[in-house]
């Protein structure tokens, strides 16, 4: 029983990280109707940014989190302008191949620059843990979890209340009408993409303190993000959070209690993805 609670707590804490990645992905798809297959690579780059700031400048991840987010949002802007925008009117085939190609490029650039070694940022809070009763809670993971919750709430407020948020929602519901109403649709695309990649960068930065960063780390995480987005419902921040929670806990349980362990946990997100798509094949990703 004690073990069980510990496992559930671990799964819950990790789900905050998943939500950060998934929400960026769903936001970009909602507004631009493009699935960014390179989304995981933006996360990976965010992780390396934090890592190198730590190694070279001894910058605490708490600070470099924000720097990573801004850097990745900027990179996202450039990518959106130069690569994604030109194919927005093209067939979905071109869009898929483009973002997939971008993912391959980023992965291999990282491989060359930083080798395929696993790296991580070691601070006092990455190894320190609290004891609540019999449950041990990693300080860093707890911090990430609360940061994710705050950010999700913030994003929810931005989307609901602010002018920009209204613009984004209008564009995601009906880009043509939004354009007719005088909304600068390109600006909306840029904002959505920048927020999305910024969140991915932040997630990568957070990952580097509690797990490892390596060039193909994004592939692992984007699978989970796909499952979450599909499961939680498109464009729904709350849905993504709930789906992240369920996925995180399920993975944690499978990893602990199923013989053969960690391998099967990796298959959880795929199973979720398939199951949801079987029962709601057109539901989420239909445009």
């Amino acid at each position: 029983m004690e073990n069980f609670i510990q496992v559930v707590v671990n799964g819950t804490l990790i789900s905050g990280l998943y939500a950060l990645i998934a929400v960026g992905l769903t936001l970009i798809f909602g507004v631009m109707r493009v699935i960014n297959f390179a989304h995981g690579e933006f996360m990976m780059l965010g992780g390396y940014t934090t890592y190198w700031l730590f190694v070279l400048l001894r910058l605490d991840p708490l600070l470099s989190l924000l720097i990573s987010m801004v850097v990745l949002a900027g990179l996202g802007l450039i990518v959106q302008r130069c690569l994604i925008n030109p194919v927005l009117g093209a067939s979905s085939l071109n869009q898929i191949l483009l973002t997939f190609g971008l993912a391959i490029i980023l992965q291999n650039v990282a491989m060359i620059l930083w080798t395929s070694d696993y790296v991580s940022v070691q601070t006092w809070y990455s190894t320190h843990s609290l004891r609540v009763g019999f449950v041990r809670i990693s300080v860093a993971k707890l911090g990430i979890f609360f940061m994710a919750i705050i950010l999700m709430m913030l994003l929810g407020i931005i989307l609901k209340k602010t002018e920009t948020g209204k613009v984004l929602r209008a564009v995601s519901q009906d880009p043509q009408t939004a354009q007719l109403m005088g909304i600068d649709i390109n600006r909306a695309y840029m904002i959505a993409f920048a927020i999305g990649t910024g969140l991915a960068g932040l997630a990568g930065a957070a990952t580097s303190t509690v797990m490892s960063i390596f060039p193909t780390v994004g592939v692992e995480f984007i699978m989970k993000a796909f499952a979450i987005v599909v499961f939680g419902g498109l464009g729904s921040v709350a849905g993504a959070c709930l789906a992240s929670f369920i996925l995180g806990v399920t993975e944690s349980l499978v990893g602990t209690y199923v013989p053969g362990g960690g391998g099967w946990a990796e298959a959880v997100s795929f199973t979720v993805l398939i199951l949801v798509l079987i029962f709601r094949p057109k539901g989420i990703f239909s445009s």
């Binding site: 297959f37 979905s92 898929i96 796909f226 499952a227 990703f285």
Partner: peptide
């Protein structure tokens, strides 16, 4: 077969990775 092309791309990618 009932999915959009986006979903197919995701599912096949996930299939190979899993």
């Amino acid at each position: 077969c009932r999915m959009t092309v986006w979903a197919i791309a995701i599912v096949t990618l996930a299939f190979a990775e899993v």
